[in-house]
Lab assay of single mutants.
Amino acid sequence: RPMNAFMVWAKDERKRLAQQNPDLHNAVLSKMLGKAWKELNAAEKRPFVEEAERLRVQHLRDHPNYK
């Protein structure tokens, strides 16, 4: 299953946050990521939305029978 825009963004952002906050549990990091994503405007999200769409199209090509 291809990543959605949030997952594309969160992949690198989670690493950055975890390095800055090594003692935080994953659940806390996830909440921080969700809050930060909601605060991004459409222009800030656009590159990740476009990458998610590219991944979706590639997934359809690679797995035409996937449901």
Rank of each mutant, 00 (worst) to 15 (best):
V8Q: 01
E53N: 10
V8Y: 11
D23R: 08
K35F: 11
P47M: 02
Q58S: 11
A5E: 04
P64V: 11
L55G: 05
L40D: 01
K67C: 07
A18R: 13
G34N: 12
R61V: 13
W37F: 01
F6M: 05
V8W: 01
A52Q: 01
D12A: 14
L40K: 14
D12C: 02
A42E: 12
R61C: 10
A43L: 06
P47Q: 09
K45Q: 08
E50Y: 08
K11Q: 11
P2M: 13
A52G: 02
F48R: 02
E53V: 02
H25K: 12
H25S: 15
D12M: 08
L29A: 05
A42N: 10
W9P: 03
F48P: 03
K11P: 02
A10P: 00
W37N: 13
R46Q: 12
R46I: 07
P22L: 01
V28M: 13
Q19H: 15
E39A: 12
E51Q: 14
H59F: 10
K11A: 09
W9Y: 08
V57T: 14
L60R: 14
F6W: 02
R46L: 11
E50Q: 06
K11G: 05
R14M: 08
E13G: 01
K38I: 05
Q58G: 09
E13A: 13
N21K: 07
N4W: 04
N4S: 10
D12I: 03
A42Q: 13
L33R: 00
A18P: 00
K31G: 11
K31M: 10
S30D: 14
E51M: 10
Q58N: 07
S30M: 14
L29Q: 04
L60E: 14
H59E: 07
L33Y: 01
P2Y: 11
A43S: 12
S30V: 10
D12L: 05
M3V: 11
D62K: 12
D23C: 15
Y66S: 15
N4F: 01
R16E: 02
M32E: 08
E53S: 06
K11C: 07
A52T: 03
R16N: 05
E53R: 08
K35M: 10
E53Q: 09
N21C: 10
E44L: 07
V28H: 14
K45I: 03
G34Y: 12
E44I: 09
Q19M: 13
V57P: 06
F48K: 03
R16T: 04
A36Q: 13
D23T: 07
K11D: 05
M32P: 03
W9I: 05
N26P: 15
H59C: 14
Y66C: 15
V57E: 12
N4I: 07
S30C: 10
R54K: 10
A10D: 06
A43K: 09
V57D: 12
N65C: 10
G34P: 01
P64N: 09
R54H: 06
H63K: 14
H63D: 11
E13W: 05
E13N: 15
F6H: 00
E50C: 07
E53T: 07
Q20G: 07
M3S: 04
F48Q: 01
Y66K: 11
R46E: 12
A10T: 01
E51I: 05
R46V: 05
A42I: 05
N4T: 10
L55Q: 10
H63A: 13
D23A: 06
Q19T: 10
A5L: 01
D62V: 08
D23V: 11
P2F: 07
H63N: 15
V57L: 14
M32G: 02
A52K: 00
R1C: 05
N21F: 14
W9L: 00
V57S: 13
R61Q: 12
H25G: 14
N4E: 10
P47D: 08
H25L: 03
S30F: 10
E53K: 11
D62L: 08
K15V: 09
Q58V: 06
L17W: 01
S30W: 14
H59T: 12
W37L: 00
W9V: 01
W37G: 03
L33M: 08
Q20H: 02
D23S: 06
E51W: 00
A42R: 07
N41H: 06
V28P: 06
R56A: 11
N26F: 09
M3Q: 07
R16P: 00
V49F: 12
P2G: 10
K45Y: 01
F48C: 03
L24T: 11
R16H: 03
D62E: 14
K45D: 00
N65M: 08
L24M: 12
Y66W: 13
W37R: 02
K45P: 00
P64L: 10
A36V: 05
M3W: 03
Q20T: 12
A52N: 03
V28R: 12
K38L: 10
P64R: 12
M32T: 04
P64T: 14
A5V: 00
K35R: 13
W9E: 04
A5H: 01
N26H: 14
W9K: 02
N21T: 04
S30Y: 09
L17R: 03
E53H: 15
K67Q: 14
L24D: 11
G34A: 15
K38G: 13
P47W: 02
P2W: 06
K31V: 05
V49C: 06
A36C: 01
R61W: 07
N4V: 01
N21I: 01
N26S: 14
R61K: 14
S30G: 11
W37P: 01
V49Q: 12
A36T: 07
P64Q: 15
E51Y: 06
Q58K: 13
M3R: 04
D62M: 10
P64D: 13
A18F: 14
E39F: 09
W37A: 01
E50T: 05
V57C: 15
A5N: 04
N65Y: 08
M32K: 06
A43Q: 05
R16I: 05
W37V: 01
V28A: 15
K67H: 07
N21R: 10
A10M: 04
A27I: 08
A10K: 00
M32F: 03
N65V: 12
L33F: 02
L17G: 00
M3N: 01
A27S: 09
H25D: 15
Y66M: 13
V28G: 13
S30I: 07
V28T: 14
A42V: 09
L33E: 06
E13S: 01
W9Q: 00
Q58P: 09
Q20W: 03
N21D: 06
R61I: 13
A52D: 01
H59W: 12
A36W: 01
V49T: 02
D12F: 06
V8F: 11
A18H: 09
E51A: 11
A5D: 03
K35E: 14
Q58R: 10
K38E: 11
R46D: 03
E44A: 12
H25M: 02
P47S: 05
H63R: 14
L33I: 03
H59Q: 12
M7T: 11
E39R: 08
L40C: 05
V8P: 00
A36L: 11
D62F: 08
K35D: 15
P64H: 09
D12T: 10
L29I: 06
V57I: 07
D12Y: 01
E39Q: 11
A10W: 00
H63Q: 14
K67T: 14
K11Y: 02
N4L: 03
K15Y: 04
E39T: 12
L60K: 11
A52I: 00
A52H: 01
R14D: 00
S30R: 13
K35V: 08
N65L: 11
A18T: 06
Q58Y: 05
N21G: 04
N21E: 10
K35L: 06
R61G: 10
P47K: 06
D62A: 14
R54G: 04
R56L: 05
K35A: 07
A42Y: 12
K31D: 01
R56G: 07
N4H: 03
R16L: 06
Y66H: 11
L33C: 03
L40V: 03
E39D: 14
H63G: 13
P47G: 07
K31L: 05
M3C: 03
Q19R: 13
A18L: 15
R1T: 01
E13I: 04
L33S: 05
R61M: 13
L40F: 04
L55C: 05
K45F: 09
L40Q: 02
G34F: 15
K45E: 05
V49G: 02
H59Y: 13
K38C: 08
V49H: 12
K15S: 00
A10G: 00
P64W: 09
A43G: 08
Q20V: 10
E53P: 00
N4Y: 00
R61P: 07
L17S: 00
E13P: 02
R54Q: 11
A18Y: 14
L55W: 05
Y66F: 14
W37M: 00
V57Q: 12
F48I: 01
K35C: 07
R56P: 02
F6G: 02
N4C: 04
E51C: 07
N21L: 08
G34I: 14
E44C: 08
E50K: 10
N65D: 12
R56D: 07
A18W: 08
L29G: 06
